[in-house]
Design a protein around this nucleic acid. Structure first.
Lengths: 335, 335
DNA sequence: AATCAAGCTGCAATCGATTGCAGTATGGAG
DNA sequence: CTCCATACTGCAATCGATTGCAGCTTGATT
C-alpha cells in the first residue's frame, strides 16, 4: 500500500506537503493536486504512524458490561451523539460483566489505543480502583465512586439507584402494602448494596420491620427473577408486593406469577427498574424507575472530552435523580 | 510515559531485549527482570509503534447499522465469541443505517486501524460496492452480494430473507387467508427487494393476484409499522392478514390494531420477522421468522479470521435457512 | 583442549507519518 | 526598483517499537 512518499513522488511534491495537505494546510493548487493523486492511488493516512508522532489517537471508548441489555442502549446513543460531533472515533468494548475484561479495557489506555474511556462497571471497589488512578488517563465512571482518602477522586456521572429503589418502595408503601419483598443483586457489589439500602431505608422511614426472609438475591437476570418469585411464593403466600432491582428481574417474576395463577397487580404488585422498552410492552405494563441513561451517556461523554482536552480541570461528580414511572403492575393493596 | 528505552535503561539491558521479552522471547532471568521493572513503571507497549512496524493491528471491527435493534444482539455475541478466542481486539462501529458512515467504517481499513471488518449493510449495491473491492482488505458481508461480472465476488454469510418472508406468507395462505397485505422496507434496497419478492413469489405460487395497493413501505421501524397499518385500515377493511418485514414493524402494526379495536389474530393475523425477544413477549405472542443471527455472527467472524490469516483462500458464500416460528398472532382465517 | 551448535543479546536500520527551521516566491508599499 | 511581510515548501530529525545480523556465552561433543 502507498505512503505519503509515494503520493509525493507521484505528485512531484515533498512528503511534507502531502502531510500538510491532509491536515488542511498548503496552497490551493497543491491541495487539489495531492487529493487527486491520493484518490487515484487509493491512499489514506496511516493512522498508527500519525498517532505515534502526534501522541493523539482521536479515539474514545465506551466499556459496557453487556451489549444485550436494553438498559445501555440510550446511554450508548447519548454518548455517541457527543463524540460524533467532536470528530472522535467511538469504539465500544464489551466487558461481559467481568473484572478481568474491564482491566483489559483499561490497558488500552496504557497502550495508547484510545485517548480516554467511559467505564460502566459493577466491579470497581476499594481494592482495584487503583488501576484507574494509577494510570493518570482520562476515565469517566458511570458509578458513584468517591476515593476513600477524600482526595479529588474520579470523574463520574451516576444516577442515584439508592433513591430509585427507595422511590419504588415508598410508592408501594403509599399504596397500602405492608409485606413487601425485595429481589436484588448481590450486596457485595456497590450497586447491589445501594439498591438494597434503598429498599431497607424506605421501610425504616415508614417504621416497617425489615424481614430478611423477604430479600432474595437475583442477579439482574430474568431467570433469577423467575426463580426468586417461585421461592418467595413457596414460603410467603401473604406477600402483596415485590420491589425488584431491574426490569428483567421483574419480568421473570411476572412470568412466575402467571404460571402460579397469581394476578398482577391484583394479588401481587411488582416494580421494576430502568424503564427499558420491554417494561412498557408487557402485560400488565410495568411500573418502573427511569434512570436517565441517555443523559448519563451524554454527560459522561462531555466530561470525557473536556478532560482529554485539559487534564488539569478539577474532577467532576454528577448525580442525576431517577424518576418513578407508575404504570399498571402496581395498585392499591387489597385490604 | 515510559518507552522500552526507559525500561531498558532501568533494567540495564537493551531495548531489543525489552521488546523481545514482551513478545515472549529472551532468557528466563531477563523475562523476570524486565517484567518487574515494567510493572513498576506502569509500562505497556505502545500499540501504534508496534503496528507501524509490524503492519498488523490485531483488531477487527463489526459495523452494524443499529446497536439498539435487538436483532443484532445475538450476531454481536456470536462474532464476539470467535474473536475473543483468537486474541483479536473486537470493536463495534455504529453506522446508523447511513451509507456515509459505512464508507467511513471502511476507510478504517485503509487507515490501518483494523485488520478486517464484518459489515452489516443495507446499502451496498452495484454502484458503491466497488469501494470494498477496490481496497483489497478482508471484509465479510452479512448480505448476499454476488458481483455482477460473475467474478469471485465477496465473502458473505447471509440468511435467505426472501425465503423467510415466503415462509411467512405461505403460512398465512395455508391458514386460509386470501387478502394479505405486506409492510416492508424500500424495494430500492437489496434486502427490501428480496423481502418483497418473497411475498409476491409466495402469492404467485398460490396463484393469488398481486395487489400493489396492499403493499406499504415501512422502513423497519415501529412507527412506520403503526402508520402503515393505520393507512391500510382506512382503505382495506377486508384484509385478514399482514406480512411484515421485521418484528418492530409488526409491533407497530399491532398497536395500531389495538387502537382501532381490531382483534389479533381474530380479525387480522400478523407475522413479524427476526424472532427478537420482544416478539415472544407481546400479547398476543408474535408469529415470526428466526433468522439465525448468532450463527451468522459466528460464521462471519470465522471466515474473517481465515481471510486475515491468508488472503488467497477462495471467497466463500454461505447461505443459511430461516425458520418459521408459529405463535399466537396468526390463526385460521374466519370464513 | 579444540570445535561447534544453540541460544541470547545488542546494534542500527526501519516502519510512515509530523513539524521546527530555513529558504523561496509573491505581492504590496514606499 | 528595492525592501519586507506573508505564505508556502522542502529538509531532516523524530515518535516507539521490531528485527536481521553479527558477536558472545554456554555446554556438549570429539
Amino acid at each position: 500500500m502507498s505512503t505519503i512518499y509515494d503520493i509525493a513522488r507521484a505528485a512531484g511534491v515533498s512528503a511534507s506537503t502531502v502531510s500538510r495537505v491532509f491536515s488542511g494546510q498548503g496552497s490551493k493548487q497543491n491541495q487539489e493536486l495531492v487529493f487527486r493523486v491520493a484518490k487515484q492511488m487509493n491512499f489514506a493516512i496511516n493512522d498508527s504512524a500519525k498517532i505515534l508522532k502526534t501522541k493523539k489517537t482521536n479515539r474514545v471508548m465506551l466499556a459496557v458490561p453487556d451489549i444485550c441489555n436494553p438498559f445501555y442502549f440510550k446511554m450508548i446513543e447519548g454518548a455517541n451523539g457527543v463524540f460524533e460531533q467532536s470528530g472522535y472515533l467511538f469504539m465500544l468494548y464489551y466487558t461481559k460483566h467481568s473484572l478481568e475484561e474491564e482491566l483489559k479495557a483499561l490497558q488500552l489506555l496504557n497502550q495508547k489505543v484510545v485517548d480516554g474511556m467511559i467505564m460502566v462497571s459493577f466491579h470497581f471497589s476499594k481494592e482495584n480502583i487503583g488501576v484507574i488512578n494509577q494510570s493518570n488517563y482520562p476515565v469517566v465512571l458511570t458509578n458513584r465512586y468517591d476515593s476513600p482518602d477524600g482526595q479529588d477522586g474520579f470523574d463520574y456521572v451516576y444516577v442515584d439507584t439508592h433513591l430509585g429503589i427507595k422511590l419504588a418502595t415508598r410508592h408501594l408503601i403509599e399504596l397500602g402494602h405492608r409485606k413487601i419483598a425485595y429481589f436484588g443483586g448481590s450486596i457485595r457489589e456497590q450497586t447491589g448494596l445501594e439498591r438494597y439500602l434503598g429498599y431497607s431505608d424506605a421501610l425504616r422511614e415508614a417504621s416497617f420491620p425489615l424481614d430478611n426472609s423477604l430479600v432474595y438475591e437475583a442477579n439482574y437476570s430474568e431467570r433469577e427473577g423467575h426463580a426468586s418469585m417461585k421461592a418467595l411464593l413457596e414460603r410467603h403466600r401473604d406477600v402483596t408486593a415485590v420491589v425488584t432491582s431491574n426490569d428483567l428481574v421483574a419480568l421473570g417474576a411476572m412470568t412466575a406469577c402467571t404460571e402460579e395463577n397469581i394476578a398482577i397487580p391484583g394479588d401481587i404488585a411488582i416494580t421494576g427498574m430502568d424503564d427499558t422498552e420491554l417494561s412498557n410492552r408487557v402485560t400488565p405494563r410495568l411500573t418502573t424507575v427511569a434512570m436517565q441513561e441517555g443523559e448519563i451517556g451524554r454527560l459522561a461523554a462531555t466530561i470525557l472530552m473536556e478532560r482529554i482536552a485539559d487534564a488539569s480541570v478539577p474532577r467532576r461528580q454528577i448525580r442525576l435523580a431517577p424518576e418513578l414511572i407508575v404504570r399498571e403492575s402496581t395498585a392499591r393493596a387489597q385490604s
